[in-house]
Design a protein around this nucleic acid. Structure first.
Lengths: 256, 256
DNA sequence: CCAAGCCATATGTATGGACATACTCATCCA
DNA sequence: TGGATGAGTATGTCCATACATATGGCTTGG
């Protein structure tokens, strides 16, 4: 592929496409085969420009692409450090909002059935993302298509003490609670975990949703995090025949 | 924010950070408020360089970021066309492989219990991603932790005719079928749909997995696509108490 | 021995310039 | 009237240069 002549690697007369792309490919091969080991510093921009007999601009273009694909990180004053022998992003699923991600219909209506304070034991702390001994507010209720419409789900929400004062706003709220609480918070929700499982529908939920005994639920447990900790954890119980969770994943371009 | 003086917008003495970032923010505001309507061409690089009294390089850096965030697309000879008033990527979940996405343990063992050809009716065609009247191969079996270990799931796979000849390789296969079929295909799997739901475990599956009557399943229906169409569709029935599906989503940087 | 300051180094930002390539539109010819 | 060609335009590639800023290591002083 590349012709090593002394310390100069020729790229001008080989292959097609822009020169920076050709240099990028050569460097990527070296990263993959361990010539530049993970954790080490690559040759400097100036050194590479000398090796490839090209301008620093061209080398920087090649390195920028390697940075974007996750092979290296670059620090002013330090150099270009290898962080992986493989590109970091292969498949992705992207969303404009968490509402879209969670396939939440925004025009719904929430009825609070019961509110209480709970002291977390070890196992509940693990579920909600708090610490044992902490006091959280537990809110249970039913989300409806609209006032007087059909019940959609039985929901148990767990709210940490710092947001407890906003719980009265849940009643009648249209849309997702996490965005309600986010609007009261100085920092945005920047991370979320969801866990999907199948389970028998709890008896209380069967009664609230008007289901026959033995009903099955698709359970969606979600923890919403900001940099200040968990904002809210909610456990949604959906009747099995009324909800399925759909995902559509694409492979990234540029990894052909 | 910006001071319009004739046709020159000053950025040198305002705010902090690199100049290209400041220009990017100004341009982003204009995109969001419709100054540059979707579908239209923005001012040229040279025009913007004139307006901001800066070099073409600096303008290009600002435009590159706008391109990466999805506001515009740039074509040589044509210009910079507005494609959205909003950034295109807000939340994402990324994976290095589909195996990671689907939380598939690779050291599992598949036993084929039954294979048959089926002619798709309308409703089955919709499920598997084929066309009514087409003949597909249906393979049912059980995936085990290891030979002689525990059963993990009952799996129904539907394979289009062009891959039917590879079905005999399913028996005893460790790992995912889609990667087996991908290795026989000229083009990669580049897209996948998954649908998660809760349902009663089918009777045959209950028997294969040694479950008591009335068992509940988490059902995972997956369609794998390449540019040449569906590669395989598989329907996995997991005992509810043995599997939950976990997701971890982060908000993109740069959209603070 | 530890902390602070200085210096060398490497990437980040930015300018000005030149040429290549892709794209569209207008004009001309069959 | 339709197709082909050429000219004008705008982004893509690449160069040389200069200065700014971040980083780490070494030296000096307390």
């Amino acid at each position: 592929m590349s012709v090593q002549d002394g310390n100069t690697t020729q790229t001008q007369d080989e292959g097609t496409g822009p020169r920076y792309a050709r240099i990028q490919k050569i460097l990527e091969s070296r990263l993959r085969d361990g010539t530049y080991p993970v954790g080490s510093l690559m040759p400097t921009e100036i050194e590479l420009a000398g090796e490839f007999d090209t301008s620093r601009f061209t080398v920087r273009e090649a390195l920028r692409h390697l940075t974007e694909t996750g092979f290296v990180e670059r620090r002013q004053g330090l150099g270009t450090r290898v962080i992986s022998t493989e590109p970091q992003m292969r498949y992705s699923q992207t969303f404009d909002s968490l509402q879209e991600l969670f396939q939440v219909a925004v025009e719904t209506y929430y009825v609070v059935m019961h509110t209480e304070e709970v002291v977390l034991d070890k196992s509940l702390a693990e579920v909600v993302g708090g610490k044992a001994g902490e006091t959280w507010t537990r809110v249970e209720g039913v989300r409806w298509t609209e006032p007087g419409g059909r019940p959609l789900a039985f929901i148990e929400s767990y709210v940490p003490a710092r947001f407890a004062k906003y719980v009265p706003e849940f009643q009648g709220h249209q849309g997702a609670f996490f965005s309600l609480l986010e609007s009261h918070s100085a920092v945005p929700i920047d991370e979320c975990e969801q866990e999907i499982s199948a389970a028998p529908m709890p008896e209380k939920a069967q009664r609230y949703l008007g289901l026959a005994p033995g009903a099955i639920a698709l359970q969606l447990l979600r923890r919403y995090h900001s940099s200040e900790g968990v904002v809210i954890t909610s456990c949604n119980w959906h009747p099995a025949e009324q909800l399925s969770y759909k995902m559509h994943i694409k492979r990234n371009r540029g990894q052909a």
